[in-house]
């Protein structure tokens, strides 16, 4: 068995009396794409926030490649390989599309602290950003300020920023929400392409069952903050606990 790339152990957070994530213990192997499902308010985004460090855990640990990162801050965790895309688009609105991507590539390469070079002069950084733009079919918008993009294109860029970060752990939070039917496949293809990198692990919060069925190697179900099911897609989807987690509501598409 391969060792776990990412592990959470009894990970818990309480907001006042409300337990948003309840002692979740779960490991994620390299080369695996895990879909995380659960009804609205189940704690999926909060679970991500605990892993990437946006909120501090009330109890429990997070380990990345065996190293305890529970006490590290967001940017330290990021530099160790935890990458995160957000459910609510979270970009640099006044800067251009290309500049948004360049900033990520530059961060990963640790080139932010040079004061006397010219921003555009780092060819490698620019080339990498432009390649990704082409894969997203956003080349024509390279110089547009992000604030002027359509919602769908902002969602695409949100995903692209995470891919540009090239982390060990990819965390996608409903990446295709709000995208049109012809935009979503571009993004899903990009995510599927990441599965070729067998030294990485991918966590994907997603409601659409057809997407999960085609991409996921494994599903975990969160319900009221607790881990309610964990296993191969067919088994989990068929289980009673999923039906209950969705409170009688059928999963989308079925």
């Amino acid at each position: 068995m391969t060792a776990m790339l990412l592990e959470t152990e009894d990970l818990t957070v309480r907001f006042g009396g409300h337990v948003a994530v309840d002692a979740v213990s779960c490991g994620f192997r390299a080369g695996e794409l895990t879909a995380i499902v659960g009804p609205n308010g189940a704690g999926k985004t909060t679970y991500f926030n605990l892993i990437s460090g946006q909120i501090a855990a009330s109890a429990g640990r997070v380990r990345l490649a065996g190293r305890d990162i529970t006490l590290l801050n967001v940017s330290e965790r990021c530099r160790l390989g935890l990458g995160r895309a957000f459910q609510l688009t979270n970009l640099f609105p006044g800067l251009s599309v290309l500049e948004n991507l360049r900033l990520v590539v530059q961060a990963r390469r640790g080139r932010g602290f040079s004061l006397l070079r010219l921003a555009g002069s780092d060819r490698e950084v620019t080339r990498e950003a432009e390649e990704l733009l082409a894969r997203l079919r956003l080349e024509a918008l390279a110089e547009q300020p992000v604030s002027e993009l359509s919602h769908g294109n902002q969602r695409k860029l949100e995903v692209a920023l995470l891919i540009a970060l090239d982390p060990l752990v990819y965390m996608f939070d409903e990446p295709t929400a709000g995208m049109s039917l012809d935009e979503a496949p571009v993004v899903l293809d990009l995510i599927a392409g990441l599965k070729a990198r067998t030294d990485r692990t991918i966590l994907l919060v997603e409601h659409k069952m057809d997407v999960i069925r085609s991409l996921a190697d494994r599903i975990i179900v969160l319900h009221n903050g607790a881990l309610a099911a964990d296993g191969p897609p067919e088994a989990v989807m068929a289980s009673a606990v999923v039906q209950e987690a969705y409170m009688g509501r059928e999963l989308e598409d079925v």
């Binding site: 946006q54 979270n90 640099f92 609105p93 900033l103 932010g112 040079s114 070079r117 010219l118």
Partner: peptide, 16 residues
Amino acid sequence: SPFGRVLQAIRENDFR
């Protein structure tokens, strides 16, 4: 410079 771009990024969205 690259540094200046990071400053702008921080101004635009320090969280990200």
